[in-house]
């Protein structure tokens, strides 16, 4: 097996991710788990597992990112913004605009042609426009993740969810259900509402900029479709999108 030179850990609000890379930045192994409240303990256990998988020696360097990054004993600690940009650039080899919808925040990162972060925006107020928003409402609607795409595609119309606040949106959805509205149409409307919030955070994306998407929400094809419809642009979902932050941390720590 190729030698592992570094491991990147992304401690997110909903998931804990780690990747081990070789000197060229190829992913040798990865772990994605639900985030546990005791970050230190989870990191110690899962990191040992990953190290065992890739037979990592003591010299392996650790990079940490994500909202729990400061709880990780690492050689290098960087924000998600820098790490997502680093990971995305490694995979695409070009600049562009990266949309990362995370559990508790959404980031729009402008990446230069040399991989530098040129600019970014990030919601810092509440869960509106984040993966948590989607998660809370889908849970309230009792729609499991693997049914989302089916229901989204089945809906002929959509019912927009107008409240930006997750808590208010939850009660809005409860009222819609009580009024007998179609769940599938609410699911579609929910995705479209989130897409329009993300698009407004992104602002005007220059026509010559490619758009990439990372983060766990990028695995939700209904969300990607809603964003494509809302922006009228092609969006390239990066491979293993939920691992991009961890990959960036591993690359930076090499």
């Amino acid at each position: 097996m190729t030698e592992c030179v570094s491991i990147g850990i992304d401690v997110g609000s909903t998931t804990w991710k780690a990747v081990a890379v070789d000197s060229k930045g190829n992913i040798l192994a990865s772990i994605v788990e639900e985030a546990e409240p005791l970050i230190d303990r989870q990191t110690e256990r899962a990191l040992a597992e990953l190290k065992a998988q890739v037979k990592a020696g003591d010299g392996v360097r650790i990079g940490a990112t994500g909202y729990g990054r400061k709880r990780v004993r690492a050689d290098l600690v960087l924000t998600e913004i820098t790490c997502h940009a680093r990971g995305a650039f490694h995979l695409t080899g070009k600049g562009g605009v990266l949309i990362d919808i995370g559990g508790q925040d959404t980031k729009i990162i402008k990446i230069g042609n040399n991989g530098d972060v040129l600019d970014f925006s990030m919601n810092d107020k509440c869960a509106a426009g984040t993966g948590r928003f989607l998660e809370v409402i889908l849970k309230r609607l009792r729609v499991p993740f693997d049914e989302v795409a089916l229901r989204f595609n089945k809906a002929v119309n959509s019912i927009p969810v107008s409240n930006t606040c997750t808590v208010f949106a939850e009660s809005e959805v409860v009222s819609l259900v009580a009024e007998g509205k179609e769940i599938d149409e609410i699911v579609k409307g929910l995705h479209q509402s989130l897409a329009s919030r993300v698009a407004s955070l992104a602002g005007d994306i220059p026509p010559d900029s490619e758009i990439f998407m990372s983060g766990g929400v990028a695995l939700n094809e209904s969300m990607v479709k809603s964003l494509v419809d809302r922006t009228g642009r092609r969006i390239r979902v990066l491979n293993s999108p939920q691992l991009i932050g961890a990959l960036g941390a591993a690359l930076a720590a090499r």
């Binding site: 909202y67 913004i81 508790q104 530098d116 972060v117 990030m122 810092d124």
Partner: peptide, 23 residues
């Protein structure tokens, strides 16, 4: 400061310092 706001400030510092060496 909230965690998100701290992250924005830290990311800004990384960006202003070019986020370490670029590829």
């Amino acid at each position: 400061l909230s965690g998100q706001l701290s992250t924005r400030l830290e990311a800004f510092v990384e960006m202003a310092s070019k986020g370490g060496e670029s590829e």
